[in-house]
């Protein structure tokens, strides 16, 4: 899509806003609708738009596939290890009181933020991975084909 000038300029403007919104949804999920799942999807949309409008190679320069594959596991591990930590601290698995035993409510807050971060990372990475997998197979196509 090299010759779609307006599309490219608008996309450049939008990507920053989309990512900012994703971060807002991620960390403000306790107070308003949102959370890790939605934030992950929105964040991956930013990368998908970038690779659709510019090119897949450009997007993979920003976010190389091997890195995304690692991120998939990192998110899930972050989630699971939070649970393991609370288990070692003498609480039930995934009982966030363990993070701050003197003040269980703030422990709950921190725990929720941590695991939502894990969810967000995994969902972003999986969606981007799936898109890369589909897009890297697509034969080069001209814009007239549709």
């Amino acid at each position: 899509m090299r010759h779609h000038l307006i599309l490219r300029v608008v996309t450049k403007l939008l990507i920053g806003v989309i990512m900012l919104f994703a971060l807002y949804v991620q960390f403000h999920g306790d107070y308003s609708p949102g959370g890790g799942f939605q934030a992950g999807v929105i964040m991956s949309v930013a990368f998908i738009i970038y690779s659709v409008v510019f090119s897949l190679a450009d997007a993979q320069k920003v976010l190389p596939p091997w890195f995304v594959h690692k991120l998939m596991a990192v998110g899930l591990l972050l989630y699971a290890l939070t649970g393991v930590y609370s288990m070692f601290a003498g609480y039930n698995y995934l009982d966030y009181d363990a993070i701050n035993p003197e003040h269980p409510v703030s422990g709950q807050h921190n725990g929720i933020i941590l695991i939502e971060l894990g969810v967000g990372i995994t969902v972003t990475a999986v969606m981007v991975t799936i898109f890369y997998a589909f897009a890297s197979r697509t034969p080069p196509m001209d814009d007239e084909a549709w």
Partner: peptide, 22 residues
């Protein structure tokens, strides 16, 4: 008073049903 998070959906998702979400 247990979780103190305004969005109940998030509270249930992450805390009460943490296993499920995992």
């Amino acid at each position: 008073h247990e979780i103190d998070v305004p969005n109940i959906v998030t509270a249930i998702l992450a805390s009460y049903r943490g296993f499920d979400t995992l």
